[in-house]
Amino acid sequence: MIQASPPPAAKPAAATPVAAPPTLAARGGFQRALRHRLLPRGRSLVTVVPVFWLLLFFLVPFGIVLKISLSEAAIAMPPYEPLFAWAENVLTLRLNLGNYLFMLEDSLYAVAYLNSLKIAALSTLMCLLLGYPMAYAIARAAPEWRSPLLMLVILPFWTSFLIRVYAWIGILKQEGLLNQFLLWLGVIDAPLHILYSETAVYIGIVYSYLPFMILPLYATLEKLDLTLLEAAADLGARPWKAFVSVTLPLSLPGVIAGSLLVFIPAVGEFVIPSLLGGPDALMIGTVLWNEFSANRDWPVASAVAIALLLLLVVPIMIFQHQQGKQQAAEARR
C-alpha cells in the first residue's frame, strides 16, 4: 500500500504564488526575438516561391485566355486586337462577345462538345467495367503478388503515351493485325473499318487511361477490411450480396476518383482523336487545336477553351474536394 504520512488537514495547494520576474529574462532576449522572427520568414519563402510560380504560369494565363476570348481576330502577330485601347487620352474597352456567339451559331462546336462528353463518359464507363474487376483481383491476390501486379499496371504509364496510341494504328488498320487475325479465324470475310472511326477513339482512350482508373480503385479496395466481408457472410449475406452492400459502397471514393481522373482529361483529349479518329469522331480538343493552328483564330480558340473549362469546372471541383477529404483523413491517421 501507499506509504506516506497524512498531509496537513487542508488539501495541497495547486501552485505556489509566483515570485517577481527575474533579471535574467532580459539577457539575450533581443537576439532570441530576432531568431524567432526568422523562423516564419523561412517558411513564407518556401510557400511563396511555388505559389508565385503557379500564379504566374497557371492562374494568370487563364485571365489572358479569358481576355483574348473577348477580343477580335486580326491578321497580325499576335493575331488579335487589343482589348484596351488608348485613343486621344481615353481608355476604351472593347468587349467582344462575338466569339461566343459564333460558337453558338455554328453547330460544329455544339456537336464537338456533345461528342466529347459522350465519348469521355462512355470511355469512363468502359474503364470502370474493366478496371474494377482488375483492381479487385489485384487487391485480393496474395500479398507478395500485389506489388508486381500493380507494377504491371503502372509500367505502360511510364512508357510513351504517344507510342502506345501509335501501336494501335498498326493493329486497327484496314490491312492491320486485328483484321488479319479475324479473317484468319474466319469470323469475318471482309476487313472491318475500325481505324479512323469513333470505335478506334474509344479503344484508344480506354487503353490509355485504364491505369488511372485501376490505381485509385486499388488504393481503396486494398484498404478495405476483409473482416467486414466475413461479418457480412456471417450475418447471412451471399458473396454477391456482400459485395453489393459492403465492398461497392466502401470503394465509392475510389470509383469517383478514378472516373474523374479518366473523364476530365478524356473530354479534352487531342492526341487520340487526331491519330485514331476519323471525321465522325469530332472532339473539342481537336477543334481547339484547329482553330488555333490551322485557322490562326486565337480569340475563337480561347473562347473554346473557356467553354471547355466551364464544362469541366464541376468535375474538377468534385475531384479537388474528394482529394481534400482524403488528405484530411490521412492526416488524422
Binding site: 501507499i2 506509504q3 506516506a4 497524512p6 498531509p7 495541497p12 495547494a13 495547486a14 501552485a15
Partner: peptide, 16 residues
Amino acid sequence: WIAQVGTPAQVYEYPG
C-alpha cells in the same frame, strides 16, 4: 486546467 498537484500519496489518499 490543473485539478490537483501533489505527491502520489497525497493525490491518492487526499484527492482534492
